[in-house]
Amino acid sequence: MRLRAVIFDVDGTLVDSQADILAAMSAAFEAEGIKPPSRDEVLGIVGLSLDVAIPMLAPQSDHAACTRMVQGYKDAYTNLRLLQGADVSSPLYAGAREALARLKEQDEILLGVATGKSRRGLDKLIEAHGLAKTFLTQQVADDHPSKPNPSMLLQAMHELGVEARDMVMIGDTSFDMDMARAAGVHFIAVSWGYHETSRLAGADVVIEDFAQLDGALDLIWSKAND
């Protein structure tokens, strides 16, 4: 049996965490006395590691200030999650749970995540949504350079024992797409996330909802076998 891997981004792909992301970023900037970036600016960097994203949003700030804002963001995000619970503050998108369950039932498909979240943040999210036994590989920002560096996907390949041609990355941002391309793996873009689909023109397939995921994967696998 030929094993295949399906790797998901998290924020903007599996869960809608934008309310907490925007609130935490505003809190981090306000603590430094800096005007917070706009919604579009913040969502435009979702997927990058915080130590890369915040200097992009605050180019006028020095390293020390950016370091404080990184920690301020983490603290604010944690507090927001504690107030509401991760399942409420970062709800799964419609159809996500069902799609994961369908894929998990197929013995030849191995599931994973590659996310800009920290290990702590991902663990809390997985626990809140009852997905503890879903992902066989979990790549997080603590252990890798920021997307679009391909390190996360290369490590996932190593852990799962699959080749690049047998892996599909699913994400909502150009950072996910560029990471997939750098790793030599297929890429499915989702239209409901944080980057406009115009920025995802290089995707193998763009899907409008999770009901289309199975067909998109079948299309990619069939082409890979040609």
Rank of each mutant, 00 (worst) to 15 (best):
D9A: 07
T67Q: 14
H158A: 15
M1L: 12
R4I: 09
F210A: 04
L136M: 05
D142V: 11
E108L: 13
A23R: 07
L3Y: 09
Q60H: 02
I7A: 03
S38P: 03
D51N: 14
V140G: 12
V10N: 10
I170S: 09
S26M: 04
I188G: 05
L122V: 13
A132I: 09
F175G: 11
M169K: 05
G95T: 08
F135A: 00
P36R: 09
I126Y: 04
K74Q: 15
L3H: 12
G202I: 00
G215R: 15
L131R: 02
A201L: 11
G215I: 13
A211P: 09
L213R: 12
A201G: 13
V190T: 06
L111S: 03
F8P: 05
L57K: 03
A5Y: 03
L22K: 01
D40G: 03
A86D: 06
A183E: 09
A58N: 08
G171F: 07
G161C: 02
V190N: 08
H129P: 02
D75M: 11
Y73V: 14
L131W: 02
M1G: 10
A76N: 10
Q106S: 14
L131D: 01
R102Q: 15
S151R: 13
P148S: 06
Q71A: 14
A23H: 04
M56G: 11
L154G: 01
E159V: 01
Q71N: 13
A65V: 06
E208N: 14
K35A: 14
P59L: 00
A201V: 06
P55Q: 04
G171K: 06
F8A: 09
I170A: 10
R119D: 14
S49M: 08
R119C: 10
M157D: 03
T134M: 13
Y77F: 15
D214V: 10
V70R: 14
D107S: 15
M1E: 08
H63M: 08
I21E: 09
A65G: 00
P59D: 01
D176S: 08
L80S: 13
A19L: 00
W192R: 10
R97V: 02
K124V: 14
